[in-house]
């Protein structure tokens, strides 16, 4: 017989009654929200409500950004509690979260992914490379930032951006969709 603490069910039960390991949500700077809100149309708010489906596209990252984006899904950051979730197809996505300096070899794949994403499609450039090519700017093999191929709605700089910074950026996108009227007290 195994000791109890090495078995799955006792651990799961402890998880049910114990304190959550999830971090509290980060505060989103107002300026970011305001800027985004201005750019989003009423129709987008009506259609999406307070949830966003995200499709991640790596366009040349060193995989550092992917590590941190993956970390967003762990139990500590728990992205889904905010109504944000990663989806497996661009056809299900509201947001393309794009990393990397946009290599020439990935340009067509990005454009095709964009074409598969229904409107309104928000494009978030995550990481210094995605913003302007980062250290890879000027190479024969990169175009130098996601904005070279598709219009970018939000940039999240960092090399790589931490999960907290990514969460802050994505939350700002979500907050910006709530119609600009006084929020009810206590509403999350």
């Amino acid at each position: 017989m195994q000791p109890l603490k090495r078995m799955l069910w006792p651990q799961l039960a402890r998880g049910l009654f114990g304190k959550p390991v999830t971090d509290p949500a980060p505060l989103v700077p107002d300026g970011v929200v305001q800027a985004l809100r201005d750019r989003l149309e009423e129709s987008a708010q009506a259609r999406l409500g307070r949830s966003l489906s995200i499709r991640q596209v790596d366009c040349g990252s060193c995989n550092g950004c992917e590590l941190e984006i993956n970390a967003l899904q762990n139990v500590v950051y728990d992205l889904e509690r905010f109504g944000l979730r990663f989806v497996a197809s661009p056809r299900h996505a509201d947001v393309l979260l794009v990393t990397g300096p946009l290599t020439r070899n990935m340009q067509e794949a990005l454009l095709r992914t964009r074409d598969c994403t229904p409107e309104p499609c928000f494009i978030v450039a995550a990481g210094d490379c995605a913003v302007d090519g980062g250290v890879f700017r000027g190479s024969y093999a990169v175009l130098g930032g996601i904005g070279e191929a598709v219009p970018v709605d939000l940039v999240i700089p960092g090399c790589p951006p931490t999960p907290a910074q990514l969460l802050e950026g994505l939350l700002a996108l979500l907050e910006a969709q709530v119609p600009a009227k006084p929020r009810q007290a206590g509403a999350g």
Binding site: D58, G60, S61, C62, N63, G64, C65, E66, L67, G100, P101, T103, R104, N105, M106, V135, F136, G138, S139, Y140, A141, V142, P160
Partner: peptide, 26 residues
């Protein structure tokens, strides 16, 4: 993902080239 790592390292001081070494695979 070809970013032209080697081409970017050429002609650079070693401290600058090290940044590309550090970003070969995050």
């Amino acid at each position: 993902l070809h970013k032209g790592h080697i081409g970017l390292m050429l002609g650079k001081p070693v401290r600058v080239a090290a940044k590309f070494g550090a970003r070969l695979s995050g």
